[in-house]
């Protein structure tokens, strides 16, 4: 990664491991010795097979989880020393999640879904929540469907609503977990193009976890996660990787 042009380090992982204790008391090592730096404006793709620890790594990057060992710094703050509430606040103000299954809240319109993260914002962002959410829906081309319920939207539209929801608080880091996994190829490409454009416009870092080599090829840096070990992948290799 090029760090020469005054990019700020958002997340830094050094020798990070994550393991869990199984019911038979054995340790399952999900991540081993991960070293990774995510800078502002980065677009990183992480590829790997199912069960290799991709989602666990994403949870660590998004402060949903903490490492078993190693150092994880989030905007210069050691994550392990932050309380659960402090991590939640930091996550709310700086991280936006896009999930594979969209995870839109049922029974709420597209607009209400986009508004939801703003309930946890303070000051102007809370009071202007409707206006901000409409702006963001407009940005993803869905302002005309603001009052539509998720079950009345197509898969692509639902993911666009999810993207609008992830970006409405203008996060510094966007974490996308298989964002095209539930979409057809064409719609997936359109969604990724939108995600990439919006991330670039807002100077946010985008970390995408994917199986899709085409999606991985869009990233400026690509990594492979295999059996919990993260290694850089050349762009040509990324295109060939499946």
């Amino acid at each position: 990664m090029d760090t020469s042009n005054s990019q700020e380090t958002l997340v830094s992982l050094r020798s990070v491991t994550r393991s869990v204790t199984l019911p038979d008391e054995k340790q399952l090592h999900i991540l081993r010795g991960i070293d990774l730096e995510v800078l502002s404006g980065d677009h990183i793709a992480i590829v790997g097979r199912s069960g290799c620890g991709k989602s666990t790594l994403l949870n660590l990057l998004g402060l949903l989880d903490v490492p078993t060992s190693g150092e994880l710094e989030f905007m210069g703050q050691p994550a392990q020393r932050l309380s659960s509430n402090a991590r939640a606040r930091l996550r709310g103000s700086t991280v936006g999640f896009v999930f594979q299954q969209f995870n839109l809240l049922p029974g709420r319109s597209a607009l209400d879904n986009v508004i939801t993260p703003l309930f946890y914002a303070k000051g102007k962002d809370f009071w202007r929540r409707r206006e901000l959410a409409m702006d963001m829906l407009d940005r993803v081309g869905l302002s005309a469907r603001a009052n539509t319920m998720p079950n009345m939207l197509s898969g692509g539209e639902q993911q666009r609503v999810a993207i609008a929801r992830a970006l409405v608080r203008r996060p510094r880091l966007i974490l996308a977990d298989e964002p095209t996994g539930a979409l057809d190829v064409e719609t997936g490409q359109a969604v990724m193009a939108l995600l990439d454009t919006v991330a670039t416009e807002t100077a946010a870092a985008l970390v995408t976890i994917t199986h899709d080599t085409n999606v991985a090829a869009l990233a400026r840096a690509c990594y492979r996660l295999d059996s919990g070990v993260l290694s850089p992948l050349a762009r040509a290799e990324a295109g060939a990787h499946s």
């Binding site: 509430n85 939640a88 709310g92 103000s93 999640f97 608080r169």
Partner: peptide, 9 residues
């Protein structure tokens, strides 16, 4: 999902 948006416990 709400926790992922920054809702504290």
């Amino acid at each position: 999902i709400r926790r992922s948006f920054g809702a504290t416990a």
